[in-house]
Design a protein around this nucleic acid. Sequence first.
DNA 1: TATAAATGACTGACCGGTCAGTCAGTATTT
DNA 2: AAATACTGACTGACCGGTCAGTCATTTATA
Lengths: 226, 226
Amino acid sequence: MPRPRSKARSSPKTPASAHAATARGRGNAREARSAARREAILTAALEEFSERGFAATRLDDVAKRAGIAKGTIYLYFRDKESLFQELIRSTLTPLVGTIEALGKADIPVAMLAERIVQLFVHEIFGTKRKDVVRLMISEGRRFPKLAEFYYREVLSHIMTAVRALMTRAAARGEVPEALARFPQLIAAPGVVAIIWNGLFDRFAPLDVEALMRAHVDLLFGPGRAP
Amino acid sequence: MPRPRSKARSSPKTPASAHAATARGRGNAREARSAARREAILTAALEEFSERGFAATRLDDVAKRAGIAKGTIYLYFRDKESLFQELIRSTLTPLVGTIEALGKADIPVAMLAERIVQLFVHEIFGTKRKDVVRLMISEGRRFPKLAEFYYREVLSHIMTAVRALMTRAAARGEVPEALARFPQLIAAPGVVAIIWNGLFDRFAPLDVEALMRAHVDLLFGPGRAP
DNA sequence: TATAAATGACTGACCGGTCAGTCAGTATTT
DNA sequence: AAATACTGACTGACCGGTCAGTCATTTATA
């Protein structure tokens, strides 16, 4: 079977570096440029991986999209797999702090619900993180190392934070204690929204914010208790 | 000019046909054998696709696993993609009837909840359908045709049935009407369970039946109403 | 000019798909 | 029943195309 081909990009070319933000009149220009290059590669890689999946993505296309030559990629990443891992790693790791912060505060459930909706809609679904999560879901099984890293460095921390928060809220009778046992139940509709968006949105568009609001309302809404 | 030939075949192979269920004393033996072959290929393909993903699966390996030669696959399926589609199609299509039947009956919510748990645990999670669903989730995006087929022939029917059922139940005040608007909320934990199982079970095993029970209890349990 | 960065032609391995050839089993003839 | 002819399912070596990764050469920078 002929592999998926990409229509030749004409290329806007590397606006990425240009000048770089460092006013520091030193050798940092190099560093800045280097960081921009790296970023450009990661961005291009995300687009290609998202569109074709890991195995079918050609590094030549990633390079073309980033406006560089293929060999340059190897100056920044050890190999294809390393590039893939770094992409997921760098995008998802920052989420931990955000969610742990959310877990710290004991705010009223109504406000918590709204925060969860906003967090998901604006920090995940509305950003490239959506695509990275999708990638993690799609390809994670073939990268046990990556799944382990993701579980250890990201997911387990989130689970712990959510569990603690829910345990406290349940103790006050504000939420069902099942949510402390199964934090997955809180995240599930978000996961489904991302999958749906990738597979079926063109047949049946999903109003993600409404879905999430309905969801938190079911969990935290009126009449909830153990 | 004759090509170089290989050493004589050793294995007898093909225990598959043997007798075949057809008492019809005709040439059906052939058909039965053929059907068994086809099935063997599909089974082998599921295992390989599940393990490696579509692009990285080698048809040579599928053949090896099915105990046949690579060329034989092409006697049963047009190409690699066709094999993949047929695999998903044939596995998932039968679910529609099952779920539509469930949607027909207006049984008490407590019983409905139990039915949903059982259906998921025994008809999906406990069977190879789990793997096929995972495949659909992982690879569906790269097969728009397949996603469309799946949506049209499977998902939309399920959605319709569930929506109708939930609408009636909501009218009786037995379930929140949000479930009629977003049937995805009912299925979400099942989807998450399948993904979790593939990615993180070795770090944090998930008790799927307990998860599903907690889930339906949240949705349909005591105190639920619009 | 010296050093670092970037390039892209090249290579070796790999794999989907093909097809000439084989042979177990079935049908036909004697 | 035995010999012969026929069939088509099955095989696996091969071909053509692809692509990750390398490295000698060129270009940019300090």
